[in-house]
Amino acid sequence: MAEEEKFEPNIIAFTCNWCSYAGADLAGTSRIQYAPNMRLIRVMCSGRVEPTFMIEALQNGADGVCILGCHFGDCHYISGNYETKRRMDLMKDLFKDLGLDENRLMIEWVSASEGERFAQVVNDFTDKIRELGPLPEEYQQKLKLLKGAIEGSRLRIVLGSTKRAFEEGEIEEERYVQAMHDIAKEEIERMKIMEAVDKNKSMTVPEISEATGIDKLRLWRHILSLTQKLVLETAGEKDNYMIYQRRD
């Protein structure tokens, strides 16, 4: 392979003000050399990073995204890093479901005193992304679905309510996380369904199933919900199936 074609990845890293950003500074003042591919975006807390940010980064030219925050127990805002970890787990899970490589996302903890570790983490992640190569074009379609699901109010409500649910509601974390994942998967499927319906204007259940690859039994549940929520409406009948279209 020719030397000039060698791939250099673009990486976006969200770093929290109190630990990892300071860690990066320390690396700098210590003159520790590390790969130049990463662009830092400072946030006050890793918990500020919304899943949408990561998707937008990938949609706009990044090949990998990482979040660097404080170690557990050290969060300046007490629980911000726990929140972001849960979201990252969800994102990785959804990446896997959609057939995207979850290794393009990373979360790591770097304290203000870990300059060396910061450099190490950056180098490792850069190497990994370099190995994975540029973000394939076909990712964009799926990222769009994912973004639609993540931005929907249903998932935003669930993602935004964790603290309340655990602390006031005393609900078991495992159950809540499971519900969160289930809802996210449902919402992605619904994005797929609506995308297909919008593209074809109106469709029947077997047609949607064919277009989206969603099993008909599961698809029917979505249709029941989408009609109940007035997103879809029926528009006649074809081959013993109702025709569905978006409701204006």
Binding site: V205, L224, N240
Partner: peptide
């Protein structure tokens, strides 16, 4: 849930 249409639970087909 189906607004009065007989649509079967496996795929929403109207039975023949």
């Amino acid at each position: 849930p189906t607004e009065g249409e007989i649509l079967r639970p496996s795929d929403g087909k109207k039975p023949k």
